[in-house]
Amino acid sequence: MAPESWYLALSAVLFCIGVVGVIVRRNPLVIFMSIEVMLNAANLAFVAFGHRLGTADGQAVVFFVMAVAAAEVAVGLAIIVAIFRLRRRLSVDDLSLMRW
């Protein structure tokens, strides 16, 4: 079995992919997916650390995070749909009504 450090490296890479995705992508849905990747990177880190420490705390936290992420999806998609109904387009570049 691969050592924990591999999982931690994978989780760090996933987190960076998520951050870069949020910064470079323009579609709110894709940005949102990138945020979910960040959350799952944290989940992977929790599980790996929990395994290394030999406690179940890390795994328990992951359940909370998954539940919260599901709630976040519900709220986020509702907001995105509400905006789409008004605009018929989906890009964060359109969110420029208010500046400075």
């Binding site: 951050v19 940005i31 949102f32 945020i35 960040m38 709220v75 969110l95 208010m98």
Partner: peptide, 21 residues
Amino acid sequence: SGEASMKYFLLGAFATGFLLY
């Protein structure tokens, strides 16, 4: 209002990712 909500949501969720990590 929709724009405020979307910006708040995307940036807030982004921040949550950092917090959780």
